[in-house]
Design a protein around this nucleic acid. Structure first.
Lengths: 346, 346
DNA sequence: TTTTGCTAATTAAACGTTTAAGCATATTTT
DNA sequence: AAAATATGCTTAAACGTTTAATTAGCAAAA
């Protein structure tokens, strides 16, 4: 591969200084008082040589790379890949390129990624933070580096963030189950201190309590991020074979639900008669389960676009106030919770 | 945000030249004959100041960015997001970062992306090429720029590529349907000149012919990349209501299949008795359809890893021979084609 | 004593841009 | 006629690295 054409080549060709070429190609002829004919010559030469600016050089000079870093838990997870797509498109519209990394929910990987992205001089970050990554974020915050959290957040951290009201959504979802007549409602969650997950659990517990349902210890199962299918399967089996057999499952995310549905499907458990099912997030699978699954829908488009707008704002004004933006959710009610409606006295 | 610590700051702190600092931090003390104590001092200062190299500056100097570009049709499509994940991990292991772009199957977007990535000085590209993008690729090839095609390819283009044997796989899949007793086999494909799709069609036609089945014009439907659900639905309805009603559908990709299954499910058509179903690729949905779907599995891990290895090889030796690597497929047989087996004389 | 050869450092150029400042010449204003 | 302003271009420094070439001191060899 031969060396690429640089501004220097154009300068030589036309017989002017590189400065002049730069002025012309950046449309600064006016300010720089470049002669009309010379400007035209430069432009012609640039076209003829097929000049393409070296953005690396430009970045070194300007201190900005027009690049954003996106850190998600796992880009192969549909939730995140969809968000990535939305952010990619929005960023492109603003003239930015996106580089993506998966943290696998590990603080160490997250730290490595943040470091790598900063070394690459990204202008800003959008992060779905991993557990234990609060300290890294606090450092970013103290450095005044522009970033926005999505999906997850930390209450003690006054960073920009875009996410749903997890407590409220979980509360409403649980209450929906109760209204539908389910009483022994179990939850399947991730074993993590991440606030968004804790809030979902808190919402679930609060709804049960508010409706006079005593929760049992073994109506709650938590799994790690690895070995999902296996863990969920074992957990469900234990709950279903135990003595306080649940009559409904509340899955805290779509990946948990998909894992759970596999088991429920194999075991031939009848939904919604024998078992009610509700989940967070979305999935094609929910539509194809023999009893389409009721779920809490969050608008990924809104989250992605809002996050990008917020980041742009923050990059323009790094000292501006940090915002925590809540995105609406909607409960999509379908057959998996369609047990006979029961009147409740409120 | 204050200015980041540079090599200059360390030099000043220790009282040496920036060159010396660079030598030490790059572990070239031996070659550069740096004194032991001075080296130690430099290292200590670097640690104390929390020095992080500016990769942009390094790239400008070295001409390499340790960055790869990945262009897929749509990162929010699970097939591509999974490939992206595999490539991300493999690239990281080699010290590379990946930037991703979605072409939406449009040659113009593809050209824009390639241009943007080249301007960013990526060291190599992995591309799932869009229709009509052959010319762009030929230019890359002539420039000697390292790249590898995945999933798609162009017969006339002697570029590196990693993909499956689409003809063979489609042939085998079709023959499986025939062996299972299906005779009026229809295909649902994309309306595109892309060879991988044409090959799948060719394989399907060849298998039918070889088994003495005359194909009907209206057993073939093709759709564009937009309005998928709608188009597939209309197409299927027309075929199923027509007079040569198909007794099996062969979907050319998972997205087509998912769109088709939605319709088939809603219409209450009985699979596999009334209708056999087979598809390319993979999908969670295939497991949850009431009759789990038979499909042609291609190992995404293999494709991703092989592509990355090939790209690395090409970057090391840009004049090396170009390779076209075929990845094995496997027909995963399940209930959606489980009609009574019929003995065939071969 | 001069030459050669180490050792340990520095200098300076380069990568490709951008941009403030400078320098002629020409033109207008007072 | 002198001073101010306009015009058209160049110089040079800067961004943060890397690295070839050079220097300078000192010890060993001829």
């Amino acid at each position: 591969m031969e060396r690429k054409v640089s501004i220097k080549d154009i300068a030589k060709q036309v017989g002017v200084s590189t400065a002049l070429v730069s002025y012309v190609l950046n449309n600064k002829e006016k300010e720089a008082r470049v002669g009309k004919e010379v400007a035209e010559k430069v432009r012609r030469a640039a076209r003829k040589l097929n000049y393409q600016p070296n953005l690396i050089a430009r970045s070194l000079q300007s201190g900005r790379t027009q690049t954003l870093g996106l850190i998600v838990a796992d880009i192969s997870n549909p939730f995140f890949s969809y968000i990535a797509r939305v952010i990619e498109d929005a960023a492109n519209q603003h003239g930015y390129t996106v580089i993506i990394g998966s943290s696998d929910e590990q603080a160490s990987k997250s730290a490595t990624l943040i470091g790598a992205f900063l070394n690459r001089q990204v202008d800003g970050l959008i992060i779905a933070p991993a557990e234990q990554s609060e300290k890294q974020l606090r450092t970013l915050l103290n450095d005044g580096f522009p970033f926005v959290l999505i999906d997850r957040y930390f209450p003690g951290l006054s960073a920009n963030s875009v996410h749903i009201d997890n407590y409220r959504s979980a509360y409403d979802a649980s209450e929906h189950l109760i209204r539908k007549g389910y009483r022994r409602i179990a939850m399947v969650a991730y074993e993590t201190a991440l606030p968004h997950m804790q809030e979902r659990i808190r919402g679930y517990l609060a709804a049960l309590k508010a409706n006079g349902i005593r929760t049992k210890r073994n109506w709650m199962m938590k799994t790690g991020f690895t070995n999902l299918d296996q863990d969920v399967q074992t957990g469900l089996r234990k709950m279903l074979d135990g003595k306080e057999r649940p009559d409904a499952f509340f899955f805290a995310t779509n990946s948990l639900a998909v894992a759970g549905l596999k088991y429920i499907y194999r075991e031939g458990i009848r939904v919604p008669e024998e078992l009610g099912i509700i989940s967070f997030d979305e999935s094609d699978v929910f539509d194809f389960f023999y009893a389409p699954v009721t779920y809490v829908r969050q608008s990924i488009e809104d989250i992605g676009k809002t996050a990008l707008d917020l980041l742009m704002k923050q990059m323009k004004n790094p000292n501006g106030k940090k915002e925590q933006i809540l995105i609406d959710t909607k409960l999509i009610i379908r057959k998996s919770t369609a047990r006979t409606e029961i009147k409740t006295i409120k």
